[in-house]
Design a protein around this nucleic acid. Sequence first.
DNA 1: CTTAGCACTCAAAGGCGTTGAGTGCTAACG
DNA 2: CGTTAGCACTCAACGCCTTTGAGTGCTAAG
Lengths: 353, 353
Amino acid sequence: MELTERKKKVLRSIVDLYIRTAEPVGSKAIAEMPDMKYSSATIRNEMADLTAMGYLEQPHTSAGRIPSPAGYRLYVDELMLDYRLSMDETQKISDAIESKMQQVDRMVEKVAKLVSQATDLPAISVASRHGGATVKRFELILAGSGSFILVLMLSNDEVVNKLIKLPLDIAEADLKLLAAVLNATLTELPPEGITPELLDRVMRSAGAAASLVPVVVDFTCDTLRKQERTNMAVAGQMRLLTQPEYRDIDKAQRIMTSLDEESLSNLPAIMQNANGTQVLVGPEHVAQELKDTSVVMTKFDIGDGMHGMIGVVGPTRMDYAKVTARLSYFAESLSKMFAKPDKPQLPEGDKEN
Amino acid sequence: MELTERKKKVLRSIVDLYIRTAEPVGSKAIAEMPDMKYSSATIRNEMADLTAMGYLEQPHTSAGRIPSPAGYRLYVDELMLDYRLSMDETQKISDAIESKMQQVDRMVEKVAKLVSQATDLPAISVASRHGGATVKRFELILAGSGSFILVLMLSNDEVVNKLIKLPLDIAEADLKLLAAVLNATLTELPPEGITPELLDRVMRSAGAAASLVPVVVDFTCDTLRKQERTNMAVAGQMRLLTQPEYRDIDKAQRIMTSLDEESLSNLPAIMQNANGTQVLVGPEHVAQELKDTSVVMTKFDIGDGMHGMIGVVGPTRMDYAKVTARLSYFAESLSKMFAKPDKPQLPEGDKEN
DNA sequence: CTTAGCACTCAAAGGCGTTGAGTGCTAACG
DNA sequence: CGTTAGCACTCAACGCCTTTGAGTGCTAAG
């Protein structure tokens, strides 16, 4: 059967309305919409066709229609009118992003929170690196008797520190020596490059501070390994409860439990060779429990050999247009922010609903 | 009327059972309990008395009884058999705490998560300082052209750093000078002690690095002020959904929304002159929405002029014995951990359910 | 003082008819 | 030939009623 323009229009109207109301939509409701020039009977015929073609579904005989996964797919791919952010929304998002952050893991959490706030849905935020980081420089700073601060400057411009307490006293000169040795031997090395032999060499050159080497190196390896891992955060799970389809607590709970870092760990893999915004409708993606759920994810580059991903999880009928608009905007803002760390440039918003 | 031993025993049995089942308990159920030597009729009489005395309530005529707030209060204060943590639970908590943390805000979040996990309820974690912190030492470390790292060692042994990028090149000597000046003039000062005059003095002494002063001082003041604020985190809100009384989504949602940092900001004030574990039953505490909820909080000292608080939020019928046991254990573990930062000593657990 | 017995109460659960939104089909219309 | 009015049909949702059974208070006997 042919998918005529009129059929498309009807389908779009149905999805639009369903997104708003979360209830099966009937022929009459569509026929009464402002720019729909046909009667309910005609719409009914079209709806019957669309159902036959697999774009709509009927919960039961005497109910209206709801979009099928295929229907959503078509909607997302072709039919969706893009949603422009209103001035107000733009402003809010910009303001939020202004509060700058430094450490990646913190940032990921913060971003997840912001996205969740902006969409009123549970949100996921991921930052992953293409390659691992190395230490660019070690600094050891004496901090009173028996303790010192280890500062690691990493190749990706992150800075990590740790206060280390030790039972013995350390002279400043010894620390200086140790720092010099570390900088000479262990910089620019991936964690697996720090071999026992190398460690042995450092120990022997370190003189009085040799006893500090293990704890310093341990922390360093830990940190580097942590940098390799992708950072992921989930926020706003409770917002799922505002959606009518999750009034059923058991359902809500089932989904909530699969909204944690572990369960979603395969998401980055799925998005691997995607770019821009992806809409994963219902059964398309692997996470078991998320059957009647959709995930909208946007991937973006943030330089330094890293890319970020933000996304939201919601009912399949969620307002894709709105959500994708906001996500894209967010992604763009974040990209810009990373390009110029301390002065996020924000795109101009357009006012319109 | 006299509160006889038998009445107490009946009351305890009722609360115990109600805690387990979340359903009104009837006379028969109590009479059938293993060490209850009286018939249901006798129990009924006692229950009638307890109701008259205000310790029990009846949702409707032909239903069993549920404890009133006064009943819970009596239970918590006198009747509760203390719950010893099983080996297994002890082990889990210890293991979790072993993973050491440094920054207070991170730690607070982590602790909230752990407590929530351990109790299967939403948890709150607070760390607050009696007095503000000051900077013990400034360090400026060159990190490539046009950027450097500012490291602040605070009086409470926290270390904070920030990578600062600037358009102009800075010589290492200039940084050294600036650091010396900062250390000479701005250490041991509360944020409000950093006056414009002082700032002016620093600027003039700083030579080539004068342009860096504002950004450095800004960050410093920010950090100090942040240290003053009490850190609070809430975790595991979703766990509320496992409780039968929150099967009603609206109810659950209402409570969830008041489970954020802002809404709970007056909690520390309420706990101010309490020490040890406090059980706030139902109407006793101020947070509006939390009417039919209880909050169990434990306050503990963690040295460095700080104290911590951990607590959980749950239905009034929650298993106080279990919850308070776990909280106390946690609090003790945390205290010890802070006393000896890198080697948390854990109390011995006793196996028993 | 304790307990068996009994009449009473009332929320919860199940059965049942009504309602109304929505459908598919057909026949008439432009 | 596409469009539309009309009509019979379907079925979840709703409200109403009855039944059920857990639980109570009271009384009288042990």
